[in-house]
Amino acid sequence: MFKKDLTASPKQKLKSSIQRSLRQSLLTTYPLLTPHIDDVLPKKSSLEQMKLPDRVSLYVIEGQPLFYQEGGGVIVPHLKLVHRFPHAFPTIRIDRGAIRFVLSGATLMAPGLTSKGGRLPDPNTKPVLQPRPAPKEGEEEGPSIPDEGADEEGHWSRELEKGEPVVVMAEGKETACAVGILVMGTKECKEKGKGPVIEEGHYLGDGLWRLITE
């Protein structure tokens, strides 16, 4: 999706009504981001939009890239946001051999996930839940956060559906290397063991990664 270098429109401040609705869709898509939402979108800073080719919008706050969206589609986090809040997004993991293909923009194929080094969700696991921060003084405890997450081995606790956004971790690495939208559900991926799983995404070193947002 961002294989080539990108040219972006200048940053544009968004109306507060649009900012509010983006905040809401971000929370709906990534409920685990709830405890961090005021850190991701500080109330006193304003969210800016950069228009990229192919109807993609990148949203930026104080020079920090946050997430992008194609047309009016699913909100997908920028890898720099994933690195800041690694436990807030659903993950799958590729084996070591698949890393260099993903980092060259290739389609992510099922065998890179079903092999020994790969990880797909396992609903039988117990996720390691991130302790939620205590509510600040004078604040009520926020809305409840679902009990999902990855276990110690890196298995996400819920099967992910086709069309859902997912972060791609890698065997032996601590930081995520890609993010994208599933073109095949994780259950089907396990059953079939072949075929494309993420076709076009955002990966380390691609045009979106290199885009200057400061």
Binding site: D39, P42, H83, R84, R100, K173, T175, L204, G205, R210
Partner: peptide
């Protein structure tokens, strides 16, 4: 702490250093 995790990025290739091996 509000920023979240601070990942250091490579000053040469800009990736997290554990991924430098995949660059040129």
């Amino acid at each position: 702490p509000a920023f979240g995790r601070q990942v250091a990025y490579c000053g040469v290739c800009t990736l997290p250093p554990e991924y430098c091996e995949y660059g040129g």
